[in-house]
């Protein structure tokens, strides 16, 4: 019964908190709206998210987020350097296929998002069976190193988080 009413408790809490911060008012009125949103939005969107993700070690998401944040800052300097100083004909842009061992769609989505936000890579597509990601690297003289870096730096951590 509870499960049918609140299919994604995490999402419900997140939405409610999100609303409170967005409205920036901590009154009974906003709390009621927050609860209303937290309950109805997951119910309405349930057809597109049928399964609850299994997160084995959710607390590891915090160091993961910090790592990604740091890499985003580093990425900006690298991309800025390529844009400003590298002659156009020396930019080695290429597509790279990255095999993915993760199976949870949520985990693959996080990996794809991470790839886009971090050093010189953008997720461009995924394989129809969800077992490979197609990424584009802005400047990758060694495409295999980029692929291995993604697998060891991000995918290995996500594997531990999602178990």
């Amino acid at each position: 019964m509870i499960r049918r009413l609140i299919p994604h408790p995490g999402l419900s809490v997140f939405l409610a908190l999100f609303w409170l911060v967005l409205a920036n008012s901590w009154t009974t009125g906003s709390l009621i709206v927050a609860l209303f949103l937290g309950i109805t939005v997951p119910l309405i969107t349930r057809p597109w998210w049928p399964d609850r993700p299994r997160v084995a070690r959710p607390w590891l998401l915090v160091p993961y987020a910090l790592l990604v944040l740091w890499d985003v800052i580093v990425a900006n300097f690298q991309v800025a350097r390529v844009i400003l100083f590298l002659p156009k004909d020396r930019i080695r842009s290429t597509f790279i296929a990255v095999p993915v061992d993760l199976t949870a769609p949520e985990a693959i989505s996080i990996l794809a998002g991470t790839i886009t936000m971090t050093p010189g890579t953008v997720t461009a597509d995924w394989a129809a069976d969800g077992r490979t990601l197609l990424i584009h690297a802005l400047h990758a003289p060694d495409p295999d190193a980029v692929r291995d870096d993604i697998k060891t730096r991000y995918e290995a951590r996500l594997k531990r988080i999602f178990g």
Binding site: A97, P99, D125, W126, A127, A128, D129, R131, T132, L134
Partner: peptide
């Protein structure tokens, strides 16, 4: 011109 996926097709061309 794209590298092939491990198996199957890229979703765009599927």
């Amino acid at each position: 011109s794209l590298p092939p996926p491990v198996s199957g097709d890229w979703a765009v061309f599927h």
